[in-house]
Design a binder for these strands. Structure first.
Length: 336
DNA sequence: AATCCGGGGGC
DNA sequence: GCCCCAGGATT
């Protein structure tokens, strides 16, 4: 496979994306973090909105956590926001971004992939970031039968091997993004459009008629169920009370409607009620349940509602439902 | 190496 | 319903 053929295809067909053509490492880094396990379509509007609110690394470093959390709400994987904030403060204290992948890798929230992506795209370091797209392209091009995630090191080595070609080494950022585009538009997980692929002639999986079967993946475990009961308090002004979740774990550091812990067995009302912020209020059950699917869990949440003159101590009035993670907005929907 | 950590879109 | 997404941290 010739790097030059891929680059030629890229320059002819590349997607127009908001972070393409940026050279500011802050903007490249932000796009890479937002795109972790998150689709291009979902990131697009959030990327612009985040930059409008935090236009540079100094603004992000100086912002309070609550502002960052509010901006990230709904995007998922909230540890990304916490690490983004911490990394911004570290970078600001250092006077700027580390200029190579090894230095970037030390920042919170930056792993092997993101370090390589930022180094290649922002600093033209001759490294190839191996994301899901790149792994898929390599598994097919070289007919790698080892299932993921075990095959990751081998696929990353195969990808890095392209940097031996002068055309790739001359444009590491374009080469990385060309691989992303190839995986996203041609070498797709299902029904790859091999006839349009610039690497069709050299692709081993294509020759074997097996492109659609690769990469192989280890079998996944079954999902579990978690049950919870939450308590919505409205004060005299119609405001609702929220509290911050612990900084680590599910929805870490995000606002939540107070409630029971989440556990595998359902909560009977009598057992849940002591977890109400004020057990003396007149709690009534909202109809139905909020169902929310996570990667490894199904959440089943019920809701009780009460009115109070003032919010109990420990609760904060919610400024806007948009500052809640999606699961909490779903729960709020039960209140009608 | 396995598990945890969100939400959305495609099929 | 299942799969996947410009993955990282923790154990």
């Amino acid at each position: 496979m010739a790097a030059e053929a891929l680059l030629h295809w890229y320059h002819r067909t590349k997607r127009s994306l908001p972070w393409r053509g940026e050279s500011d490492p802050y903007r490249i880094w932000l796009s890479e973090v937002m795109l972790q396990q998150t689709t291009v379509a979902a990131v697009g509007p959030r990327y612009a909105r985040f930059l409008a609110r935090f236009p540079d690394i100094g603004a992000l470093a100086a912002a309070p956590w609550e502002a960052v959390a509010a901006e990230w709400a709904g995007l998922g994987y909230y540890a990304r926001a916490r690490n983004l904030h911490a990394a911004a403060q570290a970078v600001a204290a250092q006077g700027g971004f580390p200029r190579d992948a090894a230095g970037l890798r030390k920042l919170p929230g930056i792993g092997a992939y993101t370090a390589a992506a930022v180094a290649a795209i922002a600093f033209q370091e001759p490294v190839v970031p191996a994301d899901g797209n790149v792994e898929r392209v390599m598994a097919r091009a070289f007919l790698v039968e080892t299932p993921l995630p075990g095959a990751k090191p081998e696929l990353a080595r195969l990808a890095q091997g392209f940097m031996e070609q002068p055309a790739a080494r001359a444009a590491p950022g374009d080469f990385a993004q060309a691989l992303f585009d190839l995986g996203a538009t041609i070498c797709t997980p299902r029904n790859p459009a091999c006839a349009l692929c610039p690497w069709m002639a050299g692709c081993a999986a294509r020759a074997a008629g097996r492109a659609g079967e690769l990469p192989r993946k280890a079998e996944k475990r079954a999902r579990g169920v978690l049950h919870g009961v939450h308590f919505l308090i409205r004060d005299g002004q119609g405001r609702i009370g929220v509290r911050a979740r612990p900084p680590r774990g599910l929805f870490g550091g995000m606002w939540e409607i107070p409630g029971t812990p989440w556990r595998a067995t359902p909560w009977p009302d009598a057992e849940a009620m002591p977890h109400a912020p004020d057990t003396r209020l007149n709690w009534r059950a909202a109809p139905g349940e909020a169902l929310h699917q996570l990667t490894h869990r199904d959440l089943v949440l019920r809701l009780f509602i009460a009115e109070a003159q003032a919010l109990p101590p420990g609760l904060t009035p919610l400024t806007s439902p948009a500052e809640l993670p999606t699961v909490m907005r779903k729960l709020l929907g039960l209140a009608g």
